[in-house]
Design a protein around this nucleic acid. Structure first.
Lengths: 169, 169
DNA sequence: CAAGATACGTCAGCCTTGTTGACATTACCA
DNA sequence: TGGTAATGTCAACAAGGCTGACGTATCTTG
């Protein structure tokens, strides 16, 4: 599949060789470590983990989301999420309000302290992201997002697009 | 930092707004799930985990690498790597040969069975990667890699570039 | 050559975060 | 009113990180 009697397209499809794909895989691996490194350092100091960060992020992003919706965004079991959510609520970072239209539902909100931690974490993560974006330039950023979007599972893409389309920019 | 009395550059730096950066963060999160989903399914059947996949991948990529080098690529402790490596060796997927020039070192190689599993895993992962690359096109792929490279920690980038520059394509 | 450093393996224990299975409560809905 | 849905919780388990400590070869250097 790689060299030699190449596929129709030849030079034009060079970015699809196994070598190129493998390098892309490694880029994802190494970049993801960088992506999580800064928030991880902050979280470690405060005895929280990456799971707490994810919950804070998406609750911030969707004020008043329900537990079920959060579960489906995060793609974990409710037992797993609950463990994290419980500590966040106990520690006063997240507030859970009974639904008004459907009282079985709980709507999740960040408290002031929760919002402060979320901001600290996402500031750190955005700083790196901003540096990377700036270094690569707008055209590269557009490509970056196109490839990532194409890489998602269908379900995740639905969630992603719903969030993405809130962008005002 | 976002709208209003914008920074110098205005429209030209729109891709650096907090909203855009946040969406990039979410893209990384959702895409990484897709990125690992296919190999994870295969691994689950065979009672291996993502950690085994990573070891197989990098041993394949650098035949005869030493344990120390692998440690520094993976960025985990030797105890953590050893647990994984031990099972791979016991199961006959990896071979560990005493170094010839420095007998303290162990050089790691995939056996035929190890190479077969590595191929199965990376085929699955590459299939998704290929589909994403094809959907996005060569320009997007170039941008994708630029941003990821800029996102890495310095140490990881060194490892990445060393591997990347083996590309023959 | 002796002493220290290096490469590796391993034991033990701990943590986070994922899983399954089971069960209870409350609330909606047909 | 009975079934289903949304949530919370208990228990047990596994993967894969971590630290700390120790042992054994094997280099390397004074």
């Amino acid at each position: 599949m790689a060299e030699g009697s190449g596929p129709p397209g030849g030079q034009a499809l060079l970015f699809l060789t196994d070598e190129q794909l493998r390098t892309g895989i490694e880029a994802m691996f190494f970049a993801y470590r960088g992506f999580t490194a800064d928030p991880d350092r902050i979280l470690a100091e405060k005895d929280y983990g990456r799971a707490h960060h994810r919950a804070l992020h998406f609750i911030h992003r969707s004020h008043g989301t329900t537990v079920n919706n959060l579960l489906s965004i995060l793609g974990v079991t409710k037992q797993s999420l609950n463990r994290v959510l419980r500590t966040l609520i106990e520690d006063g970072l997240v507030e859970s309000r009974v639904g008004t239209v459907d009282k079985r539902e709980r709507h999740l909100f960040l408290t002031e302290t929760g919002a402060a931690l979320e901001r600290e974490l996402s500031d750190a993560q955005r700083d790196r992201m901003r540096a990377a974006y700036r270094a690569a330039g707008p055209a590269a950023v557009a490509g970056f997002r196109q490839v990532l979007e194409a890489m998602m599972d269908e379900d995740m893409r639905r969630h992603y697009l719903a969030l993405r389309d809130r962008e005002r920019g």
